[in-house]
Computed example of a mutant assay.
Amino acid sequence: MNGFENLPFLLRDMHNVVGKERSKEFEEVDCRVMFEYFAKMKEANEDFFFSWRVDEANKLMDVVWVDARSRVAYMDFCDVVCFDATYITNHYELPFANFVGVNHHDQTILLGCALVRNEDTETYKWVMREWLECMGGVQPGGIITDQSVLMAKAIQQVLPDSRHRLCVWHILSKVPWKLLAVKKAEEVHKKMKDIVYDSFSIKEFES
């Protein structure tokens, strides 16, 4: 025998292979469980919506789902929708995207969810098309996102009638970094927040 030390691979390599196979197995099981849950939700209420797509290897790429109550709520509260894809809290580190609105009690309401493999324009276009189809083709009056250029391109093509605006929180969160070279930066930052959050008219904001 040549001996363990002469093997053409390391123990670490074996662990990597085993890890990948286990991850693949877990992914297949989790996907099956997820779609079984979606099927039960659809059986309980035919207005529950879900859609997915796979790649050439028949591996799940992206999935969108919308609760029946969310579809009903959207018809009344489609004025402004926030689209966010900054959450990565799941085991597979897939970005979790969501559509969120506000009801007549100033409460946030969930209007749709998605798990996406890639954060690119084509993926966002697919998610938005599926979500828009679910909502009967009714585009929101306005849509708020972070400063992602990829999202902006998708919105221009899929939601051309929606007014696109950037999230003020994301904008103001970058202000301290932009003001590093400015004297009395904290004072300037506070003044900017006061102007943004406490102005109730265009005239008041500009003055």
Rank of each mutant, 00 (worst) to 15 (best):
N2H: 10
G3M: 08
L7Q: 12
L11G: 13
R12W: 12
D13Q: 10
D13K: 05
M14V: 14
M14Y: 11
H15C: 10
V18I: 10
E21T: 01
R22Y: 10
K24A: 10
E25N: 09
E27W: 04
E27K: 11
V29F: 13
C31M: 07
R32G: 15
E43P: 06
A44T: 05
N45G: 07
S51D: 15
S51A: 15
R53Q: 08
A57H: 08
V64P: 02
V64N: 03
R71M: 09
V72I: 13
A73Q: 11
A73Y: 08
Y74D: 01
D76C: 10
D79T: 05
D84V: 05
H91F: 06
Y92E: 02
L94A: 02
A97G: 07
A97E: 04
N98Q: 08
G101N: 00
V102Y: 01
Q107I: 00
T108A: 05
I109A: 06
L111E: 00
G112W: 04
L115Q: 05
R117W: 11
N118A: 12
E119K: 08
E122C: 03
Y124G: 03
Y124V: 01
K125W: 02
K125E: 05
W126C: 00
W126K: 01
V127I: 14
M135Q: 09
G136L: 04
V138K: 14
S148Q: 15
V149M: 11
A154W: 03
Q157D: 15
H170Q: 12
I171T: 03
V175I: 12
V175T: 05
V175F: 10
W177T: 08
W177I: 05
K178S: 13
L180Y: 07
K184H: 15
E186M: 06
E187F: 08
V188C: 06
H189Y: 14
K190N: 10
K191S: 12
D194K: 08
I195Y: 09
Y197P: 03
Y197R: 05
D198L: 06
K203C: 10
